[in-house]
Computed example of a mutant assay.
Amino acid sequence: MSTPIALPFDLSAGTVELTREICDEASVSGAEAHLVDRLVATLEGFDHLELIRHGNTLTARTNLGRAQRVIIAGHVDTVPINNNLPIRRELVDGIDHLIGRGTVDMKGGVAVQVALAAELTDPAVDITWMWYDNEEVSSDLNGLRLLAEARPDLFEGDFAILGEPTRAEIEGGCNGTVRIEVRTRGLRAHSARAWVGENAIHAAAPILEKLAAYQPAQIEVEGLVYREGLNAVGITGGIAGNVIPDECMVHINYRFAPNKSADEAIAHLTDLFGEWDITVVDRAEGARPGLDAPLAKRFLTALGVPALPKYGWTDVARFSALGIPAVNYGPGDPLRAHADDERVAVAEIEDCERGLRAWLSTSDLD
């Protein structure tokens, strides 16, 4: 079976149509190769861009000798499709929208970035554009992480922008996340003679009571208030309909403000659930807002939009860990991400395009 020819995207049609085209090129996590092939075909003729491909992560950068460099990144994968491709353009509550998988998370942002990468031949700062794969799945597959390990030189920069959906506002930093499994133990017995056993599912009741009664904190970090969350996200137990279970596991997710480390978050969970068996199954550091960096301040001033906290974890944390201040900025309401009726307002795509173009062209950045 022959490999489909990678045709370039039509940049002359504008970012809204480009969003539609990029979304219609399905790229569920692990199947991004052809979309990245098309991005290469789209940008390889532009002399001001140096293209570097690592797996299915594409970097395009200018090398103009500017005093400062900005990294602008976005992931090209989506969660699975559920009868929501091809993209539709419709009015929703009187507002023009693109509807379908990837419009919010985050191909609207990618389309803006690709269009500007081609257009901005003489920006005020050097720009490193990054489009990476496997963001929606396990961290060990994340293309940005793998690129940072293989080519740390590409991550030299003074400021980073991640095109995650923010309703065309600026969201600084992000919460961290820890997931744990909490287990209760019992003794198996026939359910007709339950009194000779110990029911591990019943023993999990105090864990659920703690979770139900827990009041998540709201913590101010550098002027932004991050809302934490502590929730059961799964529970398993039992082996058969006539057996008293000897084990139950409650899967818990803690979203913690970036004023604390993952180790401190785990210590907090240990204080809460330490009387039971705990296994840490996932951890990711948060990121402080990064809004005190000079380029970040100019970005806020130039766009004139609110600065808000990012409640979910995003790859700004990877930039933060490398010492690069980073913010989230892109079209789309994050509450619509992954939804079957995922949709982005056309005006937000256009706002982000105008905002980034104007800021990257401002003479006082360099």
Rank of each mutant, 00 (worst) to 15 (best):
H54I: 15
T59G: 10
G173S: 08
E222P: 01
N83C: 12
A41T: 14
Q218M: 09
A257I: 01
V316G: 00
D263G: 05
G30K: 04
L147C: 04
L211K: 04
T103H: 05
A345H: 08
D263N: 13
G223W: 12
L18Q: 01
D364C: 07
N175K: 13
V40T: 14
L85N: 13
R193M: 13
Q68I: 11
S138N: 02
R298P: 03
R179K: 15
A262I: 02
N253H: 04
E171T: 11
G30M: 02
L64M: 11
T314Y: 02
I127V: 15
R343V: 03
L147K: 01
E135F: 07
L146N: 05
D158N: 13
D271N: 07
T78I: 10
S191T: 15
V112L: 07
G102Q: 03
N134H: 09
G173W: 10
A124V: 10
L322N: 02
I22H: 04
L269V: 03
V346P: 14
D24P: 15
K210R: 15
F299V: 05
V125M: 03
G102F: 02
W195D: 15
S139P: 12
D126P: 08
E21F: 03
D93P: 08
Y311H: 12
E209C: 05
D315A: 06
A67K: 11
H190A: 08
E25P: 06
G94F: 07
P86Y: 10
C23R: 04
A6Q: 05
R318H: 01
G312H: 06
A168H: 03
A347T: 10
W129I: 08
P4I: 03
E119W: 07
T128E: 05
L98K: 02
V137F: 00
R354Q: 15
V243N: 06
T42S: 09
G100Y: 00
K297T: 13
G30L: 03
A287N: 04
A124T: 11
S27Y: 07
R193I: 13
G304N: 09
N84T: 11
V305E: 01
P258L: 09
R151L: 14
V28E: 14
A265L: 10
V305H: 02
I99A: 12
F9C: 07
T184D: 12
P86M: 10
G172Y: 04
K210Q: 13
Q218S: 14
P325A: 03
R89C: 09
D282Q: 12
V112D: 00
M106S: 06
L187P: 00
A192I: 11
G108L: 05
A31R: 14
L98N: 00
P294H: 03
L360N: 01
E353H: 14
E156R: 11
S363G: 02
G234L: 08
M1H: 11
D340I: 13
R183L: 13
L11S: 12
E50C: 03
D364R: 07
L43K: 06
R88T: 14
L335P: 04
A326N: 01
I71W: 06
Q113C: 06
G94S: 10
A293W: 05
P4G: 01
E135L: 06
V221D: 07
V182K: 02
N84H: 08
A296V: 12
I52Q: 05
D24G: 12
T3E: 12
D277T: 14
I87T: 09
I349W: 00
P206W: 00
A345K: 06
R298V: 09
R145D: 01
I81Y: 03
G102K: 02
